[in-house]
């Protein structure tokens, strides 16, 4: 394969911190990889861990969930719930044989444009290392 493999990452960003942080990275003209497909949600607590499973099924090679730092949640406690859920989902995915590198979570605040760049590059690098996801990809249905 002459072409380099480019991982496809789905990122769920919370509206109040991480999305604004990514926006800040954009407005400050920070250059970073474009392997990310961003989905904006109102809170990281909104992200059902099954979203991650669904994303992996439907073509993602990695998932990133990003929210406000603990204590900074716009809804007071949404990211605490998200943290518990994703800790468990991560263990479960790892146990079933999905590389833990595919499943990431981060705290990025609205003022951390530079951190956002680092997070994205780390996630993409990790996903690139483990290669394309092919374990439980949904079969294409040709009607």
């Amino acid at each position: 394969m002459s072409e380099q493999y480019e991982p496809n990452i789905v990122a769920f960003l919370c509206n109040w911190c991480s999305y604004a942080g990514a926006d800040l990275a954009g407005t400050s003209r920070v250059h970073y990889t474009s392997n990310l497909n961003v989905i904006r949600v109102m809170c990281s607590g909104r992200v059902n861990p099954l979203f991650a499973v669904n994303a992996l099924q439907q073509g993602a090679d990695g998932v990133l969930v990003s929210g406000c730092h603990p204590g900074d949640c716009h809804y007071m406690e949404g990211n605490y719930y998200a943290r518990r859920r994703f800790a468990l989902m991560r263990e479960l995915l790892e146990f079933i044989g999905v590389e833990p590198e595919r499943f990431n979570m981060s705290w990025v605040s609205a003022s951390e444009g530079a951190k956002w760049k680092d997070v994205v590059e780390e996630v993409v690098e990790k996903a690139r290392k483990v290669g394309p996801f092919d374990q439980f990809r949904r079969n294409k249905i040709n009607w």
Partner: peptide, 30 residues
Amino acid sequence: EDFQFEPGLDPESKPLQASYRPDDKEDFIL
């Protein structure tokens, strides 16, 4: 191990995923 919680022992307890502790483990977070 992570949350020192066992389900089904105390009828007064709160469900695990509907509660949190500020110091839950977060070593997996970037």
